[in-house]
Design a protein around this nucleic acid. Structure first.
Lengths: 144, 144
DNA sequence: ATCGAGAGTTGTATTAGCCAACCATCGATA
DNA sequence: TATCGATGGTTGGCTAATACAACTCTCGAT
C-alpha cells in the first residue's frame, strides 16, 4: 500500500497545485475572458445555446453566480438572451457573433499554450493522460 | 495531428474543470482550513518551518496574500512566528502543536477522499497518472 | 382562481487575490 | 561610519468569484 499512497499523495498535491495556478494563468493570458466566463461561453457554443440553470447544474455553480457571469458576458456583447416563446420563464443563451469570435481566439491561444506545454509528449502519453483525467473527474462527479 | 489535438483539448478541459471545483470541494470538506491555508500549513510542516517569502515564491502568490493568510493561521493558533536571531527582518514560521494536529486530520481526510476516488485504479495507472501530473506541472512552471 | 415549483435577479457577505505604498532592517560602499 | 539600495513583511484599497437568502415572474396542476 505504500507505493499506492505515494501516488495518491502526488496526484492530490499536483492537482491542487494546478488548481491554485489555473485561474491566475488564465487571467494573465486572457484578460478579456476569465476562466469561468470562457468555460461558460464555450459551453454555450458547444451546446448551441442553453439555459442559465443548465450551466449552473453542469458546473456546480450557484444560479446567482451564473446570472452575474452571464450579465457580464452580455454587457460585453458576447452572449445574447432569447426568451423561449413556449415558456417565458426561460432565456436561452447564445454566443453572439462577437462572442463566438472572441471564444475562437481564446480557444486557439489556449490550445497553443497547452501544445507548448505538451510539445515533447508522445501521442500515447497524451492519450493516456487525457483518459486518466476524464476518469478522475468522472469519479469526482460521482462521489462529490 | 487530429488525435493529438483531441487529447490536448481534453486535458485542457478536464484540468480546468478540476480547477473550478477544487476550491469548492475543499471548502465543503474542510471548513476549518481553506485550500490555500491547508497548502501553506502543509508546506511549513514539510519544510520544518520557512519564511513567508519562501511560501510566496513557491506558490506564486503575492507576499501580501501570504502575509494575510499567515496572519489568519496565527489568529487560529495554527502557526507561530519565530524571529530569526541572525536577521531581524525575517520571521521563521512553524506549525504549532494545534496546527500540526489539524493538518494531520485534514490530510488524512483528504487522502481518504482521494483514495475513494481512485479506489478502482490499479497501481500502474496511479503511478503513471501521478508522473504525468508532475511532468505537466513542471512544464507549466518552466513556460509560465 | 390558487398555489407550489422552477427560472432568474438582486442584496449582502466572504474569500482570495493583486498592486502600490509603506516601515524596518540589513549589508555594502563611498 | 553614515547612507543608500535591497530584502522581508504589513497595510490600504481594490476586484473577481462565489454562496446564500429573499424576491419576482411565470407556469401548470388542482
Amino acid at each position: 500500500m505504500a507505493h499506492r499512497d505515494d501516488s495518491v499523495e502526488t496526484i492530490q498535491q499536483e492537482m491542487t497545485a494546478f488548481a491554485r495556478r489555473a485561474r491566475a494563468t488564465a487571467a494573465r493570458m486572457h484578460p478579456e475572458l476569465s476562466l469561468v466566463s470562457y468555460t461558460l461561453l464555450a459551453h454555450l457554443d458547444d451546446q448551441n445555446g442553453c439555459r442559465a440553470t443548465d450551466l449552473a447544474a453542469h458546473y456546480f455553480l450557484d444560479k446567482s453566480t451564473v446570472s452575474r457571469q452571464i450579465a457580464a458576458l452580455e454587457k460585453l456583447g458576447f452572449v445574447e438572451r432569447r426568451v423561449d416563446p413556449d415558456d417565458h420563464r426561460v432565456q436561452v443563451l447564445h454566443p453572439t457573433q462577437k462572442g463566438a469570435q472572441v471564444l475562437a481566439n481564446v480557444t486557439a491561444s489556449r490550445r497553443q499554450a497547452f501544445h507548448e506545454r505538451l510539445a515533447d509528449w508522445d501521442e500515447a502519453d497524451l492519450d493516456r493522460f487525457a483518459s486518466y483525467l476524464l476518469r478522475y473527474n468522472a469519479a469526482q462527479e460521482r462521489l462529490g
